[in-house]
Design a protein around this nucleic acid. Sequence first.
DNA 1: AAGACTCTTGACAGCGCTGTCATCCAGTCG
DNA 2: CGACTGGATGACAGCGCTGTCAAGAGTCTT
Lengths: 358, 358
Amino acid sequence: MGNGAAGVTIYDVAQAAGVSIKTVSRVINGAPNVRPGTAAAVQRAIDDLGYRPNAAARSLAAGRNDTIGVIVDRLQDPFFGQIVAVAEARALELGMDVLVASTGVEGHRATAHLARLVQRGVAGMLIAPFGDDDPIWREIPRDRPVVLIDRRCGVQGLDVVRADDEQAAKAAVEHLITHGHKRIAFLGAPLRFSTVSDRLDGYLAALAAHGIPADPTIIETHCADATDSTQLLRPRLDAAAPPTAVFSSTPMIAEGVVRALALAGRRDVAHVAFGDFPLADVTSPPTTVIDQCPETLAHAAMDRLLARISGTELAPEDIVLPTRLIPRGSGELLPPPDAPQTRNDMKRTKVTAMEVRQ
Amino acid sequence: MGNGAAGVTIYDVAQAAGVSIKTVSRVINGAPNVRPGTAAAVQRAIDDLGYRPNAAARSLAAGRNDTIGVIVDRLQDPFFGQIVAVAEARALELGMDVLVASTGVEGHRATAHLARLVQRGVAGMLIAPFGDDDPIWREIPRDRPVVLIDRRCGVQGLDVVRADDEQAAKAAVEHLITHGHKRIAFLGAPLRFSTVSDRLDGYLAALAAHGIPADPTIIETHCADATDSTQLLRPRLDAAAPPTAVFSSTPMIAEGVVRALALAGRRDVAHVAFGDFPLADVTSPPTTVIDQCPETLAHAAMDRLLARISGTELAPEDIVLPTRLIPRGSGELLPPPDAPQTRNDMKRTKVTAMEVRQ
DNA sequence: AAGACTCTTGACAGCGCTGTCATCCAGTCG
DNA sequence: CGACTGGATGACAGCGCTGTCAAGAGTCTT
């Protein structure tokens, strides 16, 4: 009984139960071929002594480990919070634990974390790679299961579970176009995030599909955080030919956009954000979002990771999950009747992603 | 060079460097009394072979462990996200790792997690206990450092790091009173959270200090989540003598309050929330909050935990940190000039916490 | 009834590392 | 110049557990 005096070992249990340590080991691990009576006696001894197997000894002896590592940017971000929460819940079902590692907003700690988790002997890792072609990710160990979530990275041969960024962004922008918008600003995080890059492609594809020229002056991809998006959107709202709608490429950026609009007292600018966020439904007007269903993503990624950990052989796959648009009001605003036409209407008809990316 | 083929052991390094494993061990651990030349040779061998010490073997042999466990309600909650983030950052500084455990919104998994973390041999734990007098917390092992954060729990003899809930709540309510409010609703999570209980005490103390009778009909302590607070506030707004101000006891509840007010189109109800939350500044009107500075709390808790882990002897302490009120608008609204007087003005002058808690 | 199995159980050798204690050697000192 | 000191290094015994292999005890065949 009682709260397990530390220091109780398998030997103590064996002695108390009058069996060998191996039998105790069998009982602990639910191994077959132990007579019920023996198992019961051992179990009683375990309970009486408050024995808890030593995880370190166990993983040393068995050579395996029931810990998985999760690497994300920021634990504070609800998106990643949800991912870690799902990972933890799923791991728990299998009696595994989760070691968290956040790379920080610049990804500085990524390399160190990768090394640490390997050293810790994690059975597998769930990684939201920070930055697309960052050489850091080349260091991802290939000797154990790794699943990338949310973002791709330059590395080949790994499972990736992500939202259909390009299609979803395209759908979002078309949603705005359908409501009559032609000047739609793109506010994005840096393009080294594969997600943002894909979303920009979707944005451009939507414009192109509707014969709307892309205007580089309202495409911003240098927002590191919400403060940036607020500050970078502000002057554009006051410009000669202001956008009548804004597409935010991430929830964080959307936060800054909502703030910029609120500060400017503008309720006439349409807004669709990629990624749902808390209180999106009570902004004025409520923010229309693309829900990328972080939990679904996380579950899919964990399915994959846990399958690999349990030994299933799988070919690396790029799993792209659908998203859904949640219209709440801001994305359904119509442009003002006197909205100026696109400034460059006559001059050019197409901007390629390449050009924009300069 | 290269990405450390797993399976390289200290023996391989020793052989490559022409020394004994013990010397390698010394180098790895930065032990004194190793000739610089020897150390350099060993280091070279380590680098060449891509050797990484096996954490399991290490903690088994040394009997210590450089992992700390953090138990919180929900990782998705930015408040806890911040706490875990700080814990992780601080742990990393010392080369330690963080094992996360979320108890779920009802705290169901708490016991299991406690056991798991102990079994994993964590060096210490940071726990945000769910529920005050929940017997679960009696199971907290006393054989290793534990620091409680944010909330107390029935257990004695443990460090607690928390905000000054009662004083902060009192200040918040007095802030409303100063602006002329007399009918101030209290929306709270269940009182088994020590924080909520303390905040209710602060609320009652503020009313009492100003001779305002507490009205149990506008004191609600059964909000499990934001949905509840929305639904429970709604009818009260339409009641005969509606509150002219609302005090939300947690950010989650505040979210529901903001939503209820937005849905009802009410911008005239003053609102002060305990705990800052994202976009609080862009609600209509912007939400006045008490910032409990989660990061500061987390740092203070980690200071304590890491000190204990490193062997410092400390008497258990209840560390209460100050908060600050951030006026943003909603808390500074004045009550309507024709606001009805408190319904019970003549009938009673004081409600004790006891009564309210029925 | 002896051989062939199957089910239970145990002895024992590590897993990779650290702590303890012994050893060796270059200086120091009386 | 021999005893003495302290730094540098290594031999070795575990840490607590699991995997392997063998042995003992029944059970089933023919």
